[in-house]
Nucleic acid binder design. Sequence first.
RNA 1: GCUCCCAUCGUCUAGCGGUCCAGGACGGGGCCCUCUCAAGGCUCAAACACGGGUUCGAUUCCCGUUGGGAGCACCA
Length: 476
Amino acid sequence: MQDVRTRFAPSPTGFLHIGGARTALFNWAYARRHAGSLVLRIEDTDRERSTAESEAAVLEGLAWLGVDWDDGPYRQSERSELYAEAADRLLASGRAYRCACTREELEARKQATIAAGRKWIYDGRCRDRELGPDCGEHTVRLRVDDDEQLEWDDLVFGPSGQQGREVGDKIIRRSDGSVLYHLAVVVDDLEMSIRQVIRGVDHLPNTPFQIALYRALDAEPPRFAHVPLIVNEKGVKLSKRRDPVSVQQFREDGFLPEAVRNWLIRIGWSHGDQEIFSREEIVQLFDLESVGRSSGQADPAKLEALNRHYIVSIPAPELHRAARPFLAREAGYGDGDGPTASPELERLLDLLRERSVRLTEMAARARWFLLDEITVDEKAARKHLTPAALPILEVLRDRLESVSVSNWEDASLEEVFETVKTEQGDVSMGVLAQPVRVAVTGSAASPGIYETLAVLGRERTLERLGSAIERIRSGR
RNA sequence: GCUCCCAUCGUCUAGCGGUCCAGGACGGGGCCCUCUCAAGGCUCAAACACGGGUUCGAUUCCCGUUGGGAGCACCA
């Protein structure tokens, strides 16, 4: 069997977006699945747009998603001698030639061709001129013969290819001596011994020319796998500028990496009817054979469903760790600080799991516990903190006062509620619980009332019941 | 415009000639449960783009139409 060695090659011109993240995931999954290796290469030859911050963001995003690599990160900006050398070699072997056509001339001929309704391909004017290094300002082009069959068996799209005449002699080295993307990629993939190139279909049209480059360099091309694009609601390829889809953003919005990873790996890939894939299962089951060919949308609702799933099912310590920064933010702590871990807080988080889609929501639902001062939802107060509820709250407060701290737990609290319920003429639980809930959490929604009081603690419960009673009495 | 690619419920998809009056998941509707919010249980609606072939038989194979997309740089 052929060795597996893949690569992910992002250009650091912004954040890691979900399209790139998914490509990374596919490369990672394929490499891991086949016990191969993954190389990370930063394509930062566009000095104008590439930044160090962006590179850091990309690496951070990958790490967060659980994509680990075995080699790199390499930076193309540090490898230019390699590319220059390759261009020289091509020139020396006659597989490439110097072209002295100016941009203006090229543009004029191109426009004329297009006006004539034909596709512009370099017309080969300098092809046989055998220009030497002293020909003045010039570019270097790869010689691609008209009848050359540039074909490959795509791991996703099957047999693909073009004739040389459809490709033409493209520039591989600019007049300033720098090298173009195609050459850099081919040289790198060769030098890094990449065996499978897994990338977006938007690169598929580049492949014939790159194959021509491999041949010109007397090298065997790797296998290619072009994966369908992730598109937006309009069905158009995602763009960093237009579509707000950075991995970083999802992280800040309270999504778990497990959920985002599961979400992305399932766009364009499936394994029967299975929907939930752990990191281990992806490594076990992923394959290019079950990657589809049509582009897909990333459905936010699906991400939310997955996030809910993982919030419920990840081990408690992991959930607590993931939730900490969100709790800190909600509680108004500075960076680094955080709410003290306590058995009550952990219990509350476990109660909140089933009711939270995102960590942000979870933290918001924990506000009444995190802060000493609660904010009372006015609508809830109007409905439940009414004069009619006053006697109930008073009786409950008195009864709860006689429950000791050591007895402050679900069972004894339930007992108190049951007693009061009977005494008040068999009122329904709703009539009893809602005023208490609003009094104690400020909101009409919370975990079960016994659990809520138990987690809050005796002192704070009594204090808040007192405030609510005051509030009703003073008619606010 | 040219070259190439794609086409199953709203979305992601299963299906690799009969097992399909097309299955799952998310989303949506309804019912149940219920101290609130959720969760959960049950349930309903929802698709093979169209037209030709091939075949005893097409969602599955071929061609065309339509629709969508990608690429056409001295960008990556």
